[in-house]
Design a protein around this nucleic acid. Structure first.
Lengths: 332, 332
DNA sequence: AAATATACTGTAATCGATTTCATAAAAGAC
DNA sequence: GTCTTTTATGAAATCGATTACAGTATATTT
């Protein structure tokens, strides 16, 4: 590995001049520039980014902290984040927290220690609640979850509308007894539930508490809870799930009970995963614009990196209702 | 941000002593150690990793370079890699190359510039072929793809056996006319094909060239190629696909043709994705031990980081045949 | 031609840690 | 009580870049 000193020696100039040439500063004689460039090529010199970062007190790395990259939503978002970061000359440090607040704190610290330029983060409720105590040394953009009020940049789905949209669709299909399973770990589940209840309320429908559940956002919990709902004296006509893992669990439970979708029970969920359109009947979902979320979050972050003073912003994106067969009321 | 100097000043010692206390060196008087620790706590001091890396010429970061994190195989592997890296105090830089050799080179360079401790990489055939010209400054473990001969650490599926296992299963189910779609970009597809052909050959079956296709490993190509196969004068009785994207495309094509699985056409593939067991009929797959692959690769890499002289090793893991309904010959 | 401005380049400080070397203090040996 | 060994600490070099500052060479004015 040759260093800037070797280049300087080979080109018979000082390291300062090499640095100037590489940083494309003006005020370097063409002849000298050529000599330096030749030496760089000859030695296959590549600047040491660690040294550069230390001196300039900033790096070209962004952090991405999610609960689990295997959640299709985060998989898709992370890809978009990486693409956008790459396009701007940044790279990506990836962390999985498993919805564990301790791991979140640990990784946030790590990001500080690594002097990342900024972080994109999907926090638990716990961490969100102590956000102001954290005093992070780097800018952060929250995705998927955030406090309504918080003074933080964020890119979010309009969860209220999303919940409403899906619920309206169910009502329009004639469903009345709606079982709903929401994730408990985040603000997102709560907001989708508020959209859900608002629509039911506006339609003058009574909301039966035993139909509405908050659980850990995992397929296992979706499975178990769906069995419970189906086991009620008067089971729901359709199951509303607030994320794709819950949907998968619910689907499994319904299958196991030998019920036919949508004839005997409807099913809707969030996120247009690969399998939502592959299973039969295909699942009606509220699709999140994952690419757009990843891209906006990254760009928002980079804008803040460029200008730390800029007032915080929240970007609210709309989901898209994709109606498939799983929620077409056939009894009507 | 307080630096080691601030701590030194606060504890009334030199920076060397602070460094020693933090590195848990012996030969520091308890009283001094306490003073330093108190100062560290008081100032909430955290060592600057950039500075540490520069001085020690190594970092606690690993690189993971894959073609696309959205490929379920890589999603699963990356999670295992991150977990294992985390357990050893390392973190993860993630890159997507889209099977683009230029991007691969670029990212490999970047890894060198960032002074990562090592890289886990799933290369294209092109990059693999010029591997020896590359002279990377860091250890690398290849996953999923590698040259049989190459002097590189690697963690691989026993693709030959895997291809054989799936094919044997098909023969045992009475299938004879087998259409097969392999990925063209990597060594992996070729090896699975060799296992496939070996079994057919041993069974004394003639291999019809028009039944065996090599395509870009994407769902679109799987879809198109399946339509072609189904359109043959004498279409195959079952479709063998060599990765999960191809399987998804094939499934879509079969559905669109209104064919019933497995009564009219069978389907098998690789990787036990979330949806393989969720669609109906569930798909017979050769499951790769993704967790094991990610974990082994990371551990192998860290062992090499610890001892660069150690002879290279290839870890060959066995896949598991998971028989589901999509390949149960019902005509027999 | 002298005065001033501008272009070019090098020296040395700096970022924040680690580590070698030297030295002072304490402990052990005889 | 002197001599040697061990323990404990600090001063300063080092990693590899960037950049403030200073100085010299060239160009422009007058």
């Amino acid at each position: 590995m040759s260093s800037i000193k070797d280049v300087a020696k080979a080109a018979n100039v000082s390291t300062a001049t090499v640095s100037r040439v590489l940083a494309k500063h003006p005020h370097v004689r063409p002849a000298v520039r050529e000599r330096v460039l030749a030496a760089v090529a000859q030695l296959e010199y590549r600047p040491n980014l660690i040294a550069r970062n230390l001196r300039s007190q900033q790096s070209k790395t962004l952090g991405l902290i999610v609960s689990d990259i295997r959640n299709p939503f985060f998989t898709a978002v992370s890809r978009a984040v990486e693409d956008t970061a790459y396009a701007h000359g940044y790279n990506l440090l990836l962390c999985n927290t498993d919805e564990n607040p301790e791991k979140e704190l640990l990784y946030l610290q790590l990001m500080g220690d690594e002097q990342v330029a900024g972080v994109i983060f999907s926090p638990t409720l716990q961490t969100l609640n102590r956000w102001h105590e954290l005093h992070l040394s780097f800018p952060t953009v929250l995705i998927d979850r955030s406090l309504r009020s918080g003074d933080v940049d964020a890119v979010l789905l309009d969860n209220l509308s999303a919940g409403s949209l899906l619920t309206q669709h169910l009502l329009s299909q004639g469903y009345r007894r709606i079982g709903a399973i929401f994730g408990e770990a985040s603000t997102t589940g709560r907001e989708r539930q508020r959209g859900f209840e608002a629509v039911l309320h506006d339609a003058g429908l009574h909301i039966q508490p035993e139909y509405v559940r908050f659980v850990r956002p995992q397929s296992e919990a979706g499975y178990r809870t769906t069995l419970e709902l189906l086991g009620l004296p008067e089971p729901p006509e359709v199951i509303f799930t607030s994320n794709s893992l819950l949907t998968a669990g619910a689907l499994q439970a319904i299958r196991e009970q030998g019920l036919h979708i949508p004839a005997q029970i409807g099913l809707v969920g969030f996120d247009d995963t690969a399998w939502a359109s592959l299973v039969q009947p295909a699942i009606t979902v509220l699709a999140q614009p994952t690419d757009e979320i990843g891209r906006s979050a990254t760009e928002l972050l980079l804008q803040r990196v460029a200008d730390p003073q800029r007032p915080t912003r929240k970007i609210i994106l709309q989901g898209e209702l994709i109606v498939r067969e799983s929620s077409i009321e056939q009894r009507a």
